[in-house]
């Protein structure tokens, strides 16, 4: 092992540490501004309402008219759920609260969809 070998190893290590520092710096910059999360409610293919999902928000309830009739949606803070719907199976109601970006409640008979917007956190990517 010559002196140059040691310099090479040290150089590689230095680049590795610098890149860690760079990534850390850049991620600390981007985590400062949290992505705003909202939910989009659509009925019969059209967007009928957009709501903000911020942690401090209070409890609100409103009606969405689906194909079978009005459905009741409840928003509490950063989560949202279907409280009442005229569909036979009530699957949308049984699903309960959703809050993470990418999650959605779909009522097929009523043609109503609640979708939480934002970049979905990824567990894994496979091809």
């Amino acid at each position: 092992m010559t002196r140059a070998d040691r310099y090479l190893a040290a150089g590689i290590l230095l680049i590795a540490i610098l890149s860690v520092a760079l990534f850390y710096y850049r991620s600390s910059l981007s985590s400062g501004k949290a992505a705003s999360v909202g939910a989009v409610i659509s009925a019969q293919g059209k967007i009928v309402r957009k709501i903000d999902l911020s942690p401090g928000g209070g409890k609100t309830t409103f009606l969405v008219s689906g194909r079978l009739g009005p459905a009741t949606v409840e928003v509490e803070g950063k989560r949202v759920r279907m409280v009442d719907a005229p569909c036979p199976e009530r699957i949308c109601i049984k699903q309960g609260w959703i809050e993470n970006p990418g999650e959605s409640i779909v009522c097929v008979p009523g043609e109503t969809v609640i979708h939480v917007e934002g970049a979905a956190p990824v567990d894994a990517v496979t091809r």
Partner: peptide
Amino acid sequence: DCFSVIGISMAGAVGHNMGQLLAAFLLL
């Protein structure tokens, strides 16, 4: 002419990983 087999092998290992990383980027 200043590196020994060990240094060259090390450079090769790192070069291998860098090439793989680039290929993985192009793939994904």
